[in-house]
């Protein structure tokens, strides 16, 4: 078990290294190849050549790409000093560099956005799991009935709806026409829990609807497969009550495959729900990334990509560990 864990951790670190290397390569090498100078992005177009050269030297843009990547990695682990002669700026670990657009440290900027994305993703996850799994199980148990057909039609519609459309539609209806919800931006939980809740309720529902639809379809398919297994028939033949057959025998193995999907989905969302955040003006990681991309703010793009990849890799790891516990057939070795 310990050996397995260590091997998985090493794998996770390698994956993160590859992701950063590829991202780093693309965002620092392509602009260089097509002739745009990162120092110019950083300092602005009208600066004089001496200032540009100074910035280049200080930020290390003149170094070969591999050296720059090495320094970037060192910054994450141990922090780094940007120096040009006597002009030294210290960036404490985990250092992700300085934003080209605002000259602020990237790490605190992203940490500021993280709670927004966390609130959005976790709240929506609770909703979609409950809604999706309940619908799927109900549909499977009432297979072929009106309930099943209605639920599956809704789910099919749900997976076909783009979130940037449902989001706009929902805010048009509930905020502007019915005026059930206030217009306004995200309010931190620590500031006012009530307003935090109302500011997030629409994004939660919109995001959860999309995922709930997918989960309902998956749950139904898995449950139907499980209900057809021999051991379920055996359980019934033993004379167990239907509730025990479903609750203790069928549900467990019917829902196990969902754990993998859930881990991946949540991991992907924690790295920034770009579309939802952009539709609802939530200033989370995804929103930050989008703004950064529009301004060619490479260090922020790199930072968000790294965090996003970290969540995905971490979620994968957790899923695999949890899997061994909920499904005894899987031996971790």
């Amino acid at each position: 078990m310990l050996a397995y864990l260590i091997r998985r951790l090493i794998n996770a670190v390698i994956t993160l290294l590859v992701v950063t290397a590829v991202t780093f390569g693309i965002f620092f090498a392509i602009p260089k190849a097509i002739g745009s100078d990162p120092a110019l992005l950083y300092i602005g177009k009208q600066s004089d050549p001496a200032a540009i050269a100074g910035i280049s030297a200080k930020m290390g843009f003149d170094d070969p790409i591999v050296v720059q990547y090495g320094k970037f990695l060192k910054g994450i682990v141990a922090g780094r000093d940007y120096a040009n002669g006597p002009d030294v700026t210290h960036c404490p670990a985990p250092c992700l560099g300085y934003s080209f657009a605002t000259d602020q440290e990237v790490t605190p900027l992203l940490l500021e956005d993280l709670p927004v994305t966390l609130s959005l993703a976790l709240g929506a996850a609770v909703l979609w799991v409950i809604l999706g799994v309940a619908t799927g199980v109900l549909s499977a148990l009432r297979r072929g009935t009106f309930v099943d057909r209605a639920a599956m039609t809704t789910a099919l519609a749900g997976v076909s709806l783009p979130i940037y459309f449902t989001g706009l539609l929902a805010s048009a209806i509930f905020v502007y026409w019915l005026e059930w919800l206030p217009q306004g931006n995200y309010v931190p939980f620590t500031e006012n829990p009530g307003e935090w809740f109302t500011s997030l309720i629409l994004p939660w529902i919109t995001l959860a609807f999309l995922f709930a639809a997918t989960y309902a379809r998956l749950t139904r398919a898995n449950m139907l497969e499980t209900l057809g297994e021999d051991y379920v028939r055996t359980a019934r033949a033993k004379g167990l009550r239907e509730r025990t057959v479903i609750g203790k025998h069928a549900l467990r193995s019917g829902l196990t495959p969902l754990v993998t999907v859930f881990g991946l989905d949540l991991g992907a969302l924690l790295g920034g729900a770009v579309l939802t955040e952009s539709v609802f003006n939530l200033r989370g990681l995804g929103y930050q990334a989008l703004t950064a991309i529009r301004q060619s703010d490479l260090p922020i793009i790199l930072g968000v990509t790294l965090i996003a990849a970290f969540f995905i890799v971490f979620a994968n790891l957790v899923v695999d560990l949890v899997y061994g516990w909920i499904d005894p057939r899987v031996r971790l070795a």
Binding site: T15, V18, I26, G271, G286, V304, A309
Partner: peptide, 20 residues
Amino acid sequence: DFLLAFPQLLFAIALLSVLP
């Protein structure tokens, strides 16, 4: 596995914004 573990949308946006 690596490609599936990638923040794809983010990456596609970024890539598209640097390509000519």
